[in-house]
Protein backbone atom coordinates (compact mmCIF):
# COMPACT_ATOMS: atom_id res chain seq x y z
CA UNK A 1 0.00 0.00 0.00
CA UNK A 2 1.42 3.39 -0.92
CA UNK A 3 -1.10 5.53 0.94
CA UNK A 4 -0.04 6.73 4.35
CA UNK A 5 -3.11 5.73 6.32
CA UNK A 6 -2.08 7.89 9.28
CA UNK A 7 -2.95 11.01 7.26
CA UNK A 8 -6.47 9.85 6.48
CA UNK A 9 -9.37 9.85 8.89
CA UNK A 10 -9.24 10.67 12.57
CA UNK A 11 -6.15 11.83 14.42
CA UNK A 12 -5.14 9.99 17.58
CA UNK A 13 -6.87 12.69 19.59
CA UNK A 14 -10.04 12.28 17.49
CA UNK A 15 -9.92 8.53 18.10
CA UNK A 16 -9.58 9.05 21.83
CA UNK A 17 -12.39 11.66 21.79
CA UNK A 18 -14.66 9.27 19.88
CA UNK A 19 -13.95 6.44 22.28
CA UNK A 20 -14.54 8.64 25.31
CA UNK A 21 -18.09 9.34 24.04
CA UNK A 22 -18.91 5.66 24.54
CA UNK A 23 -17.92 5.41 28.20
CA UNK A 24 -20.92 5.71 30.54
CA UNK A 25 -20.85 8.16 33.42
CA UNK A 26 -19.52 6.62 36.62
CA UNK A 27 -17.54 3.84 34.98
CA UNK A 28 -14.45 2.36 36.57
CA UNK A 29 -11.91 2.41 33.76
CA UNK A 30 -8.40 1.07 33.22
CA UNK A 31 -6.47 2.80 30.44
CA UNK A 32 -3.48 1.06 28.88
CA UNK A 33 -0.20 2.75 28.06
CA UNK A 34 0.12 4.92 24.92
CA UNK A 35 -2.88 6.04 22.83
CA UNK A 36 -5.32 4.67 25.45
CA UNK A 37 -4.01 7.23 27.94
CA UNK A 38 -5.27 10.03 25.66
CA UNK A 39 -8.87 9.01 26.35
CA UNK A 40 -8.79 10.66 29.78
CA UNK A 41 -8.37 14.07 28.11
CA UNK A 42 -11.66 13.84 26.22
CA UNK A 43 -14.27 12.70 28.70
CA UNK A 44 -17.45 14.66 27.87
CA UNK A 45 -18.66 17.41 30.22
CA UNK A 46 -20.85 16.13 32.99
CA UNK A 47 -19.37 12.64 33.10
CA UNK A 48 -17.09 11.42 35.84
CA UNK A 49 -14.96 8.33 35.34
CA UNK A 50 -12.85 6.70 38.02
CA UNK A 51 -9.52 5.53 36.72
CA UNK A 52 -7.90 2.36 37.98
CA UNK A 53 -4.22 1.77 37.54
CA UNK A 54 -3.27 -1.83 38.21
CA UNK A 55 -0.20 -0.99 40.24
CA UNK A 56 -2.55 0.01 43.03
CA UNK A 57 -4.65 3.17 42.73
CA UNK A 58 -8.30 3.99 42.11
CA UNK A 59 -8.99 7.65 41.51
CA UNK A 60 -5.91 8.37 39.46
CA UNK A 61 -5.54 11.96 38.32
CA UNK A 62 -3.36 13.64 35.71
CA UNK A 63 0.41 14.10 35.81
CA UNK A 64 1.60 16.34 38.64
CA UNK A 65 2.85 19.84 38.04
CA UNK A 66 6.60 20.09 37.53
CA UNK A 67 8.41 19.49 40.80
CA UNK A 68 5.34 18.35 42.73
CA UNK A 69 5.45 14.64 41.86
CA UNK A 70 6.28 11.69 44.08
CA UNK A 71 8.38 8.88 42.50
CA UNK A 72 6.18 6.48 44.48
CA UNK A 73 2.92 7.77 43.00
CA UNK A 74 2.99 6.36 39.48
CA UNK A 75 0.76 4.69 36.92
CA UNK A 76 1.17 1.33 35.21
CA UNK A 77 3.41 3.01 32.62
CA UNK A 78 5.63 4.08 35.53
CA UNK A 79 4.88 7.76 34.90
CA UNK A 80 4.19 10.06 37.82
CA UNK A 81 0.49 10.78 38.37
CA UNK A 82 -1.71 12.32 41.05
CA UNK A 83 -4.40 10.92 43.33
CA UNK A 84 -7.75 12.74 43.16
CA UNK A 85 -9.90 13.45 46.22
CA UNK A 86 -11.58 10.15 47.10
CA UNK A 87 -8.72 8.03 45.73
CA UNK A 88 -7.68 4.74 47.31
CA UNK A 89 -4.42 2.80 47.34
CA UNK A 90 -4.29 -0.99 47.57
CA UNK A 91 -1.92 -3.89 47.10
CA UNK A 92 -1.50 -5.92 43.93
CA UNK A 93 -3.63 -8.90 44.90
CA UNK A 94 -6.57 -6.57 45.61
CA UNK A 95 -5.89 -4.64 42.42
CA UNK A 96 -6.08 -7.77 40.31
CA UNK A 97 -9.10 -9.00 42.25
CA UNK A 98 -10.79 -5.83 40.98
CA UNK A 99 -9.72 -6.80 37.47
CA UNK A 100 -10.26 -10.55 37.47
CA UNK A 101 -13.32 -10.36 39.66
CA UNK A 102 -15.21 -8.29 37.09
CA UNK A 103 -15.32 -5.09 39.12
CA UNK A 104 -13.69 -2.87 36.48
CA UNK A 105 -16.19 -1.79 33.83
CA UNK A 106 -13.88 -1.11 30.93
CA UNK A 107 -10.29 -1.35 29.83
CA UNK A 108 -8.84 0.40 26.81
CA UNK A 109 -5.82 -1.26 25.25
CA UNK A 110 -3.55 -0.98 22.26
CA UNK A 111 -3.20 -3.92 19.89
CA UNK A 112 -0.87 -5.57 17.46
CA UNK A 113 -3.71 -7.66 16.06
CA UNK A 114 -7.42 -8.17 16.70
CA UNK A 115 -9.12 -11.15 15.08
CA UNK A 116 -12.72 -11.25 13.90
CA UNK A 117 -13.58 -13.62 16.77
CA UNK A 118 -12.30 -11.09 19.32
CA UNK A 119 -8.90 -12.67 19.91
CA UNK A 120 -6.32 -10.07 20.92
CA UNK A 121 -2.55 -10.09 20.40
CA UNK A 122 -0.76 -7.19 22.07
CA UNK A 123 2.14 -8.49 24.15
CA UNK A 124 4.69 -10.24 21.96
CA UNK A 125 5.83 -10.51 18.37
CA UNK A 126 7.00 -14.02 19.16
CA UNK A 127 10.44 -13.22 17.73
CA UNK A 128 13.06 -15.50 19.25
CA UNK A 129 15.39 -12.72 20.44
CA UNK A 130 12.61 -10.61 21.98
CA UNK A 131 12.64 -10.25 25.76
CA UNK A 132 9.25 -11.64 26.77
CA UNK A 133 7.22 -9.31 28.98
CA UNK A 134 3.49 -9.54 29.63
CA UNK A 135 2.56 -7.32 32.56
CA UNK A 136 -1.14 -7.22 33.40
CA UNK A 137 -2.63 -7.45 29.90
CA UNK A 138 -3.70 -11.10 30.16
CA UNK A 139 -5.40 -10.52 33.51
CA UNK A 140 -7.16 -7.39 32.22
CA UNK A 141 -8.68 -9.03 29.16
CA UNK A 142 -9.67 -12.11 31.16
CA UNK A 143 -11.62 -10.18 33.77
CA UNK A 144 -12.69 -6.67 32.82
CA UNK A 145 -16.33 -6.42 31.70
CA UNK A 146 -15.66 -4.62 28.38
CA UNK A 147 -12.46 -4.44 26.36
CA UNK A 148 -12.04 -1.60 23.87
CA UNK A 149 -9.03 -1.50 21.57
CA UNK A 150 -7.69 1.78 20.21
CA UNK A 151 -5.13 1.43 17.45
CA UNK A 152 -4.04 2.50 14.00
CA UNK A 153 -5.99 0.49 11.44
CA UNK A 154 -2.84 -0.94 9.83
CA UNK A 155 0.77 -1.47 10.82
CA UNK A 156 3.49 0.92 9.68
CA UNK A 157 4.01 -1.44 6.74
CA UNK A 158 0.35 -1.24 5.76
CA UNK A 159 -0.59 -4.70 7.01
CA UNK A 160 -4.11 -4.96 8.50
CA UNK A 161 -4.25 -5.18 12.26
CA UNK A 162 -7.86 -6.38 12.11
CA UNK A 163 -7.41 -9.89 10.84
CA UNK A 164 -9.05 -13.20 10.14
CA UNK A 165 -6.85 -14.94 12.71
CA UNK A 166 -4.04 -13.56 14.90
CA UNK A 167 -0.57 -14.66 13.87
CA UNK A 168 1.13 -13.11 16.91
CA UNK A 169 0.90 -14.84 20.30
CA UNK A 170 -2.48 -14.22 21.92
CA UNK A 171 -3.14 -12.09 24.96
CA UNK A 172 -6.63 -13.56 25.28
CA UNK A 173 -9.25 -15.44 23.29
CA UNK A 174 -12.49 -13.79 22.24
CA UNK A 175 -12.02 -10.82 24.54
CA UNK A 176 -12.32 -7.65 22.41
CA UNK A 177 -15.70 -5.92 22.23
CA UNK A 178 -14.99 -2.88 20.08
CA UNK A 179 -12.13 -1.39 18.05
CA UNK A 180 -11.45 2.32 17.41
CA UNK A 181 -9.07 3.16 14.57
CA UNK A 182 -8.38 6.31 12.54
CA UNK A 183 -10.77 4.95 9.90
CA UNK A 184 -13.71 3.54 11.79
CA UNK A 185 -15.36 2.23 14.92
CA UNK A 186 -15.89 -1.50 14.56
CA UNK A 187 -17.69 -3.95 16.83
CA UNK A 188 -16.65 -7.54 17.30
CA UNK A 189 -19.87 -9.54 16.99
CA UNK A 190 -20.68 -13.25 16.80
CA UNK A 191 -20.82 -12.69 13.02
CA UNK A 192 -17.40 -11.01 12.87
CA UNK A 193 -16.33 -7.38 12.46
CA UNK A 194 -19.28 -5.04 12.17
CA UNK A 195 -18.99 -1.39 11.19
CA UNK A 196 -20.36 1.05 13.75
CA UNK A 197 -19.12 4.33 12.33
CA UNK A 198 -16.83 5.61 9.59
CA UNK A 199 -14.51 8.54 10.12
CA UNK A 200 -15.40 11.58 7.98
CA UNK A 201 -14.52 11.19 4.29
CA UNK A 202 -13.70 7.51 4.57
CA UNK A 203 -15.75 4.98 2.62
CA UNK A 204 -16.85 1.53 3.69
CA UNK A 205 -14.86 0.05 0.79
CA UNK A 206 -11.72 1.89 1.88
CA UNK A 207 -11.98 0.37 5.36
CA UNK A 208 -12.82 -3.07 4.02
CA UNK A 209 -9.74 -3.01 1.75
CA UNK A 210 -7.57 -2.40 4.81
CA UNK A 211 -9.25 -4.99 7.00
CA UNK A 212 -8.08 -8.59 6.92
CA UNK A 213 -11.54 -10.11 7.40
CA UNK A 214 -15.05 -9.39 6.13
CA UNK A 215 -16.66 -6.26 7.52
CA UNK A 216 -20.40 -6.25 8.16
CA UNK A 217 -22.07 -3.05 7.00
CA UNK A 218 -24.22 -2.28 9.99
CA UNK A 219 -24.52 0.65 12.32
CA UNK A 220 -24.45 4.39 12.32
CA UNK A 221 -22.37 6.39 9.87
CA UNK A 222 -20.60 9.59 10.77
CA UNK A 223 -23.51 11.65 9.38
CA UNK A 224 -25.91 9.96 11.79
CA UNK A 225 -27.84 7.79 9.30
CA UNK A 226 -28.23 4.13 10.06
CA UNK A 227 -27.24 1.37 7.70
CA UNK A 228 -29.07 -1.86 8.32
CA UNK A 229 -28.03 -3.65 5.14
CA UNK A 230 -25.30 -6.25 5.34
CA UNK A 231 -22.75 -6.60 2.64
Amino acid sequence: MTTNAAQIGWTREDMARRLALDIPNGSYVNLGIGIPELVARFVPEGRTLIYHTENGLLGMGPAPREGLGDPELINAGKQQVTALPGAAYFHHADSFAMIRGGHIDLCVLGAMQVAQNGDLANWSTGEPDAIPAVGGAMDLVAGVKSVFVITQHCTKNGEPKLVDRCTYPLTGRGVVNRVYTELAVIDVTPGGFSLVELSPGVSFEYVQERTGAPLLRQGTLANGTRHEDRC
Binding site: S95, F96, G136, A137
Partner: peptide, 9 residues
Protein backbone atom coordinates in the same frame (compact mmCIF):
# COMPACT_ATOMS: atom_id res chain seq x y z
CA UNK B 1 7.31 -15.08 32.91
CA UNK B 2 4.04 -14.75 34.82
CA UNK B 3 1.05 -12.47 34.12
CA UNK B 4 1.08 -9.70 36.69
CA UNK B 5 -2.20 -10.61 38.38
CA UNK B 6 -1.26 -14.28 38.46
CA UNK B 7 2.08 -13.33 40.01
CA UNK B 8 0.26 -11.34 42.70
CA UNK B 9 -2.25 -14.10 43.39
Amino acid sequence: LVPQGTLAE
